[in-house]
Design a protein around this nucleic acid. Sequence first.
DNA 1: GTGTAATCGAGACGGTACGTCGAGTCTTGTG
DNA 2: CACAAGACTCGACGTACCGTCTCGATTACAC
Lengths: 196, 196, 196, 196
Amino acid sequence: MPPGRPRSEESRRAILAAADELLLSHGLDAVTMDAVAERAGASKATIYRWWPSKELLALDALVISLEDVLARVRTDTGTLRGDLRAILRPAMTQLSQRPYGRVIAALIAEIHRDAAFAEVWQERYVTARRRHARAAFRRAIERGEISAKTDVELALDMIYGPIYHRLLHGHAPLSQAVAYRLVDTVIGVAGSPPSG
Amino acid sequence: MPPGRPRSEESRRAILAAADELLLSHGLDAVTMDAVAERAGASKATIYRWWPSKELLALDALVISLEDVLARVRTDTGTLRGDLRAILRPAMTQLSQRPYGRVIAALIAEIHRDAAFAEVWQERYVTARRRHARAAFRRAIERGEISAKTDVELALDMIYGPIYHRLLHGHAPLSQAVAYRLVDTVIGVAGSPPSG
Amino acid sequence: MPPGRPRSEESRRAILAAADELLLSHGLDAVTMDAVAERAGASKATIYRWWPSKELLALDALVISLEDVLARVRTDTGTLRGDLRAILRPAMTQLSQRPYGRVIAALIAEIHRDAAFAEVWQERYVTARRRHARAAFRRAIERGEISAKTDVELALDMIYGPIYHRLLHGHAPLSQAVAYRLVDTVIGVAGSPPSG
Amino acid sequence: MPPGRPRSEESRRAILAAADELLLSHGLDAVTMDAVAERAGASKATIYRWWPSKELLALDALVISLEDVLARVRTDTGTLRGDLRAILRPAMTQLSQRPYGRVIAALIAEIHRDAAFAEVWQERYVTARRRHARAAFRRAIERGEISAKTDVELALDMIYGPIYHRLLHGHAPLSQAVAYRLVDTVIGVAGSPPSG
DNA sequence: GTGTAATCGAGACGGTACGTCGAGTCTTGTG
DNA sequence: CACAAGACTCGACGTACCGTCTCGATTACAC
């Protein structure tokens, strides 16, 4: 153990809980260092000691509140369609329960203001979410279920892209059904010889 | 004409120009009312008289700087593929020239904070951009080029969604070639009997 | 009148009153920008706009609360002794009524931390207070009441020095009687041929 | 000897040395507990265990750095004038070598904030310095060199008061010559029948 | 021409949150 | 016990924008 007083686990949890609550009930704007500090019974200095910005704190809080879902994903259905549905189902459920759109929109804006944040975001949020689906595509290619020439990254974007588009813009409804149709469409393209 | 001193066209232009410059060279964060006022030689009160928030001012400035491109779009190629390429080509060019990703990300975040802004954004930005592509799909359906059952809105999202996804997340490259491949893929699906 | 909204006299007075109250009832330490702002119903920005530091604000407040006394001083008694007593009497009265020692000690400490403050302190506090006594000495020299060779500055210091010494150190009592004895002693020296 | 690990003499010295250095080269403001701890290689807890405040620590450090001078004072000249000059000479030399004015001003301010400090200050600083001069006056009275009615405390203040006044206010130069003239003036008064 | 009325610039105002610093306390493991 | 290390709460700092306000000055139309 390093010398000195160890980090207070209690305070860490209280800060994350405060951030999470503010984040999901009032948005990233409400996650001010002052508000988190007061609500968590912590001092601002303590927050700054462990999180360089409120955005990274919010990301931490968000990721924690999402990672249970991520951990429970099981993709062993035998078909790409089944795997992708299994991956998207809990995600869509979660998105519909809380105003994640607002939060994610604010954090995506932060990507473009803070390169350090962008990197962590990529690592902790984007990569974690795409990994499962990418693996499902790879397995489908190995099984010969879809063409080996499939551009997996673009295929992922054709599923996730429209979902985020609707989540962020709100110009059209977003539901599990929509997600399933995206899956079917993308598989339809990848399953048949490429048309381009 | 109403009584009183008329609005100063000069000041209006100076404010929009200042906002546009700040927006594209330093991002939405730099578009503070103070900075715009100083740069435009205007007073903050004047800005507030005509724009309710800096975000709506920024949107105004952005739309002006984008609308030339929009006006020049000609979609009379005879094929859906040609039309969509004609629509996307100048857009992709423009996106690659200036840091629009940063600006659009910030404005999308604003959607979720300000319902009034969301409405204007929908009207002035989203709708304007989708209208052309939607019309192209409609014409293609009428010509029998694609199935009449095509979900046009979803098809639009499968083109625009991945583009915005990459623009905003930056997890993968974005280029005209990528946009063209999206077009081809979507047409490939819509042209053949639906697989879902 | 200069352009722009004129300075609010009301806020100026409220800030000075708040500072004065905090200064005299709880000392300079209590004169925090936050406390003054809250008590005056003003914003910190407004205070900073007009006073560069809380010490200069406190000095302003202090000088205002002292200057009435200074203005009422009349030195036309005809003798140096009478003049000096007339000058010191109200000062000693004032010093005994409120904890000025604490305040002056804190401000004198500030002299050594902030050269700008030192200058203003010299101008607004020290000079104002010594001027009367110095003039009394000059008139006494002109009248031939005391030697023309008298080092007036040192004589002033031999009156004010011990007073401040006791005020600041508190090692011995300070009263009007003590001040009068200092006056008599110094005149006794100056009246006779210098011994140095 | 009490049980447990004995106090570290090394750490005590390092802390005082660090405090002294910070005090004289950057003033009392620089004597922060953190800075002293870091510079001394000690922990803040250790400092707090032995010194209740940074001001008392600074006083300790200051007194140590002054007490050599005090110990070397020899007052056996046979005349009050000679004794007082012998007492003041090394003090004035020391004052002119390092920025003691700043330090003393800050500590005097502390007197008025902390009664415990005031007491220690009185004991360790003021009394120690006045004792010699007071004794010299007493001997002079015994010798019949000055009037037995002399108010010794006031006489001391008429020497030390102006010196501190100039040291703290900086409104006029302070030198050994000035100190000597103060001595001569005070003796002049005390030596002759009182003029009041 | 002379109101009347809305505009304009300038800039002061009360607020809120920022990120930092120091004070003084507490909690570890080590000597 | 004392000690180094260092995390903790608390409160003030000085700054930056926000959105509102109060000025004097300007510029139109209506009478």
